[in-house]
Design a protein around this nucleic acid. Structure first.
Lengths: 338, 338
DNA sequence: AAAACATACAAGAACGTTCCAATACATAGG
DNA sequence: CCTATGTATTGGAACGTTCTTGTATGTTTT
């Protein structure tokens, strides 16, 4: 069932059918309706490979995401998807498995599908100029750590929160509430990831408030999973580590941490306050409700698409947008008086 | 950058390059390495549109999913994705927005991309034979309500749990623990959805145990969201509705319900037991841990792919696989003695 | 040494679409 | 009536692959 069949079926040429389908002018109403009817009857659907092949520039952009499992990314994903669809573009999603290189995978995708641009969602930007040069389309990094300056900032756009500052804000909030023994639950302190950035904010907040840093209060997990977070907190408690508050680098890890505290007989927030950054739906229904700095997930996705399309359509140069979180005050933090 | 450029660059013909890339025999080692080097140097990536156009049958299948937001589907999605990739197929994902018709969207996708098959994930199967005939590739329904018999079962494969029986099992478990005033939290009782099936199991379990059905104990929400579930339970409590146990049709709704109970000063499970079906990761970290019938999410995704590929490759006829849940005993249900 | 055969490569059709150039046919201006 | 101008339609090239068929070159067989 090709455009040729449709053409034959109603005795016109292939080009005419093509023009009807693409809503070109210069086609009489009589022919137009005849063609449309035939398309309906024959259930004809254009072959997108053929179309893409002949069209120099597609209207497709790519979304490369590392680890779709994360509930935070899911929300951003949603926003990206709907914004792109609204703008009349289509989207190719490429899920990156651990060990794969997202930029290289993105470059492949771009060449293979003739994409107009790329959105990189979540991860760590640790590339050199060569990698980027390979990718000759505009791209925007959403929720990426790009603060390590290993790449010319003119080469791309980005949408992030200021991870370091937001972590600082969270920890500072704990300090203001009288906490001085503040532990941190994170995945890594030196992989140039978001985890490291938030760790830097933690360190800085301690320092500015004249609190000595204690290595023992850094609870490091293997991966971002809830099980790892749970285990890490359990272990810390078993070692009788004392802390009155816990800063978690993600909501889901915080929920697991609260569970671990609860299972060990500690009450949140009475025995230990918990604060995090993310603002996923689930953590609003934890007991107690998690106090967290909620990332503007929808806005981040929307903004990423807008920046990308602006670059593609040549309206603007690249931009680096830093959004702010919105504090969601739950019941997981309380004031202590020494 | 096309195959032609590569050919010119190393002074061979287009066909030779093609044969190198497709690992055909009949090409000398000397030429092979020369071509490979050129491919590397020029960063040549084959244009997939051109390839798909000329290849009669692609190795792609489609995944049509309604509402990617659901954490349960996310897990299945994961399993589907990796199984398909492992089998050497590629996957097109189509997210269906409310109001869109998944079968029609699937048919479009199939024709447009020359897909070999389709997996429909989550939703309600309410189609007639015409719709299905349009879709002339094999398809499998995963986690679908297909028990209403409105379609010839020979036309497709399916992977489900027995929603009615599993709901029965959950409610029966509550009864065995002494509960007789058992409420149900659901989205709908008559839309042929999974919600309705589980509601049927609830009704049946009550009946078999000689418990009179009380309309007031049916807490209906608007949609599957946690906010709706929370509100519905709050309202029931405000009306001083009395029940010693609550059966929820999904884990996320159960987590929201437990929060509502907690906020109203009721303790789970002492004042009210809660049980659900799904087994998402998050509900293992609720307080108390949710008692739930955990769906074999990974197995469901894997099995769906296997059934589909079997049908595509003609090894087997269609099959309808019903998997069993695995009970996860948390702390949200307790025995009561009247 | 001629014939038969294998091997390594080239030429070109085909896939289904878009779009430019060409054509046919009106309609109007002189 | 012949030429300009416009409108509706057609023909065919082009997109970048794959794959079949064809052709040189060298190698074995008789």
């Amino acid at each position: 069932m090709t455009i040729k069949d449709v053409a034959q079926h109603c005795g016109v040429s292939v080009s005419t059918v093509s023009r009807v389908l693409n809503k070109h002018p210069d086609v009489s109403e009589r022919v137009r309706s005849k063609v449309m009817r035939a398309v309906e009857e024959l259930h004809y659907v254009p072959n997108s490979s053929a179309r893409d092949l002949v069209c120099a520039a597609s209207d497709a952009v790519g979304l490369v995401v590392r680890g779709v499992g994360n509930p935070f990314f899911l929300d951003v994903f949603h926003a990206v998807e709907s914004t792109i669809a609204e703008a009349g573009y289509t989207m190719f999603v490429q899920n990156i498995h651990p060990g794969e290189d997202e930029l290289r995978a993105g470059a492949q995708l771009v060449r293979s599908k003739k994409l107009r641009g790329l959105i990189l969602l979540g991860g760590c930007f640790d590339y050199n100029a060569d990698d980027v040069a390979l990718l000759d389309v505009p791209f925007v990094c959403c929720s990426y750590t790009n603060s390590f300056g290993n790449l010319d900032e003119k080469a791309y756009s980005s949408v992030t929160i200021d991870d370091r500052a937001e972590a600082h804000r969270a920890v500072h909030y704990l300090v203001k509430n009288g906490h001085r023994r503040i532990a941190v639950l994170l995945e890594s302190t030196d992989d140039r990831s978001i985890s490291e950035l938030r760790y830097m904010g933690y360190r800085q907040a301690l320092e500015e408030n004249g609190i000595a840093f204690d290595e023992a209060l850094v609870l490091q997990t293997r991966g971002y999973g809830m099980d790892a977070a749970y285990d890490a907190v359990c272990e810390a408690l078993k070692k009788e580590l004392s802390f009155s508050a816990l800063f978690c680098i993600s909501d889901s890890m915080a929920v697991a941490a609260m569970k671990a505290l609860h299972d060990a007989g500690r009450s949140v927030p009475k025995d230990c306050s918990v604060i995090a950054i993310d603002g996923i739906e689930m953590s609003a229904y934890s007991i107690p409700t998690l106090t967290t700095l909620s990332q503007p997930k929808h806005e981040m996705g929307e903004m990423s698409v807008r920046l990308l399309l602006d670059m593609i359509e040549g309206h603007t140069a690249n931009r680096h947008v830093v959004l702010e979180t919105e504090p969601r005050r739950g019941g997981s933090v309380c004031r202590i008086c020494d």
